[in-house]
Design a protein around this nucleic acid. Sequence first.
DNA 1: GTGAAAGCGCTAACAT
DNA 2: ATGTTAGCGCTTTCAC
Lengths: 347, 347
Amino acid sequence: MKFQKNTRKKSHNSITIVDVAKEAGVSYSTVSRVFSGFEFVNEDTRRKVVEAANRLGYVVNLQARSLAGGRSNIVGLLVPGIDNGYISEIVKGIDQELANSQYDLMLYTTHRYAGKEAYYVKMIANGLVDGLLLIVPLVTENYLQALPTQDFPYVLVDQADSERPSTTVDVTNWQGAYEATSYLLGLGHKRIGFITGLTQLSSSTERLDGYRAALEHHRIAVNPDLIIEGNYETNGGYLSMLRLLDRPIRPTAVFAANDLSAFGALEAIRERGLEIPRDVSVIGFDDIPEASIVYPKLTTIRQPLIQIGQVAVRLLLEKLDDPEKEARRVTLATELVIRDSCAPPRE
Amino acid sequence: MKFQKNTRKKSHNSITIVDVAKEAGVSYSTVSRVFSGFEFVNEDTRRKVVEAANRLGYVVNLQARSLAGGRSNIVGLLVPGIDNGYISEIVKGIDQELANSQYDLMLYTTHRYAGKEAYYVKMIANGLVDGLLLIVPLVTENYLQALPTQDFPYVLVDQADSERPSTTVDVTNWQGAYEATSYLLGLGHKRIGFITGLTQLSSSTERLDGYRAALEHHRIAVNPDLIIEGNYETNGGYLSMLRLLDRPIRPTAVFAANDLSAFGALEAIRERGLEIPRDVSVIGFDDIPEASIVYPKLTTIRQPLIQIGQVAVRLLLEKLDDPEKEARRVTLATELVIRDSCAPPRE
DNA sequence: GTGAAAGCGCTAACAT
DNA sequence: ATGTTAGCGCTTTCAC
């Protein structure tokens, strides 16, 4: 690890509790009590202190508080990156919910620490934050193992943890995929392609399973040639779709494991001179904001993205309030959103 | 200010430099020196320390470092919210650039502190972060006044500061607007509407000025009836466009001060049964990712969003490295991106 | 109910 | 080149 050379002290000429104590004529531990929410302070004293603080423009120094054993009132959010409608919607929910609390947000993007996740997480948890929110953590194992104590508060967003009981919020991936596939089936499609997500993520395999189950339920054999690996990204969806179209038996419909992939598929289909949904129907998963903006508007399975973020925060705060609280998993419902990208097959 | 009641200590059972010092058989200030990048440490000692640290799994505690007068290696980012393609692109640039440095990012959204901006900023600057990035700060004045010291490092993104010399990165708003309007003019349009942004922002007035200048340059009288106030949001653009269409003289083209507004305009136009670009042309500003996804694809003025974020970070790091560095303003070029939402007028 | 004092993990003089 | 020591601003015993 390289570190910045320390050339200069930060300018720290701020008002501290000592100043406030002087101004209010009390000891500085009293000031501390007032601001840390300690209950047994005389009303008069409290008022004096608060007034003095306001007069001076005092604001608490979170690092000092945290160092001294209190809380930093900061929660960490670990995401791959923010350049993704799916994630920014969840972040929006997180932000909204956090705004109702006294917590601030520290944003960590993992892409910069590929291969050093453990170090990174340790640093984060060791440092500043009271708890951690992990969104689709690709290397869940590494992350969690690195947590400094068994009971460091964290919650997993949209990723199951098979190793230990982890507080988790996710959605009905299997059911959503089942419903998407059934919808296509109901439209009359028989050859339905599936573009997977990142196969190491539980959401991806759950969706694949849902797709399979729906086909089987309709007594349609699952054709491995119609299942093709994607990566949850637009370009991956594009490439996969191209390969799918080049196969001898072309699907009349495609279910992409997320909207981003579906966008790529849309592009690929058009590039082959085919029309959507006339020649091939496309359905996605997520319902990110862009889904209703693209042309044609994407039929998709909606995840309550904002709500996911909110729930994640609530679970974390619960755990922060009561460390004994045991891990639980909240699974939110998905919902089919019918728009313009699906139609019955032509033939 | 309410604060969280402090029910429990954070579990802090982490390895400190004292442990490392013991393990390595040196004093703990030596360990500090090694990890804070101090130069004059014997190679042997350094190696011993690093090895001991690795063995123990030591990671630095940033709060303690920062409290003790060092740097936290965290920069703060103050944004209205992240739910906006414009902002998330800039954030992406910021994140990319930060990844090359040793800095982490603390994200603050202002919407939660409406009316208490000063307090909020003070708290931020007082606390943790070494410097601050302010994106389109609506209440620039309040923010800047609240900075604890005259020389607290900050940079303003896409907002001019008329009060004091502030390090700023922005784009050629005037020129971009001039070019957009000229393009429409060149297509043959005479009645060109303008949907403004948030009027208190310099970017908005600059764009309006550019629009006016282009018209004047083409000897077309600026018609106040064609200028209508928006708010940089989709819904605002939608509402403004509706009003514009209801005026006696309908514009044949509209320039929206940003893409989000343009999207709203698109919707409004369609809702009135008109076709784009046949009946009315639309041009935007920003070129957020969605601009090339909407239908029809939006012709717009591109801002180098990612680059803006990168430059902002670079400017801040410069300032952090050398506090004496004086304020400067970097203005990046915009560029016309022609897509499908503009055509010559019909009549 | 309030004050005094120790200490959180670290940096930065000041010594040696 | 390395050790010693005094804080940074705060919370939290422990006294009174």
